[in-house]
Simulated assay, not measured.
Amino acid sequence: MADLGRLNQLPVLYSTPQGIYLGGGDHGEILLPNRYVPRGTQIDDVLEVFIYRDSEDRLIATTEKPLVMVGESAPLKVVSVNRNVGAFLDWGLPKDLLLPFRQQAEPVYPGDTVIAHAMVDEKTDRIIATTKLNKHLNKPKPVGFKAGQPVALVILAETPLGYNAIVEGTHQGLLYHSNVGARLEIGQKLKGFISAVLPGGKLDLTLDAKGYKRVAPLTEQILTAMQENGGSLSFDDDSSPEVIRQNFDCSKKAFKQALGALFRQRRIRFTNPGIAYVDIRENTGQEWRPGE
């Protein structure tokens, strides 16, 4: 059976001038318009498609992926407001996503970006959005998350302790101020990590991997950036956390640890300001090895 608002694996039944029809189980046959049909598609092929309702309320398939699926939360831009029904959000598909007035935590206006959760309205069987997030993100203990796991984050709100963030579009976690270093914006998308799964299922988050897992990839990133910039960079220990986050997607603490590792390996020197690449082989005539 096709699952409304999510990705589905559906078989190709037959072709028409308008497109191909897919087997939707209890939902019957579902049209995949020609513009979405992959080249070389044959009868009985199985395609991955997203199922939603078109402007005439018919089920329709697309091979495009929306910015949010049912059961997920994401930042979406308000396209327009209809005083009779609510706001419409851009979720990456031809038909905008309805945010009914009754589902708005506070009024929204065209041009706003809101954190919205996609769900199926039980009364109409249509996909709608809500900005009343608590009951959707405060779920039972999350399954499958573990310490050190990389995750996609969306900043939800600032609190006295740090920032509440949406984890993988489905759960909520906390980024402590001590693990951030730079001010974050509501709706900002970041790469992060699970630092701890606490009793009761609460998630503690960090923007950097721990220990060597954090430093080793970052040192290679810094070296690559230096090579692409002619052997030097204008960034060093005195660079601001905001500049470091923007250019290297890491905290200032992690950046300083990576610079320290490169300096101890004699692969960089500090030029005050900035850093420059050091090729030990040119100085010694021997192949360089870490720790030598």
Rank of each mutant, 00 (worst) to 15 (best):
residue 121 D to G: 05
residue 160 P to D: 01
residue 126 R to E: 09
residue 172 Q to L: 08
residue 134 N to W: 10
residue 267 R to W: 03
residue 191 K to V: 07
residue 37 V to H: 10
residue 43 I to K: 13
residue 196 A to C: 06
residue 11 P to A: 13
residue 11 P to M: 09
residue 142 P to I: 00
residue 212 Y to D: 15
residue 178 S to H: 00
residue 282 E to N: 06
residue 163 Y to K: 04
residue 15 S to N: 13
residue 163 Y to V: 09
residue 15 S to H: 11
residue 223 L to P: 02
residue 41 T to F: 11
residue 208 D to T: 05
residue 272 N to Q: 06
residue 188 Q to P: 08
residue 244 I to R: 02
residue 77 K to H: 14
residue 33 P to A: 10
residue 30 I to R: 05
residue 184 L to P: 01
residue 170 T to M: 15
residue 214 R to E: 03
residue 100 P to M: 10
residue 36 Y to D: 14
residue 71 G to V: 07
residue 23 G to M: 05
residue 255 F to Q: 01
residue 139 K to S: 07
residue 173 G to N: 01
residue 40 G to P: 12
residue 102 R to S: 11
residue 12 V to A: 13
residue 35 R to I: 09
residue 152 A to V: 06
residue 99 L to I: 08
residue 114 V to W: 09
residue 182 A to G: 00
residue 208 D to A: 02
residue 220 E to G: 01
residue 190 L to C: 11
residue 67 L to T: 11
residue 264 R to Y: 13
residue 243 V to G: 01
residue 144 G to I: 11
residue 159 T to F: 06
residue 254 A to L: 05
residue 85 V to W: 13
residue 218 L to F: 03
residue 108 V to P: 13
residue 281 R to C: 01
residue 250 C to A: 07
residue 209 A to C: 02
residue 272 N to K: 10
residue 10 L to A: 02
residue 158 E to Q: 10
residue 149 Q to Y: 00
residue 185 E to Y: 11
residue 95 K to C: 05
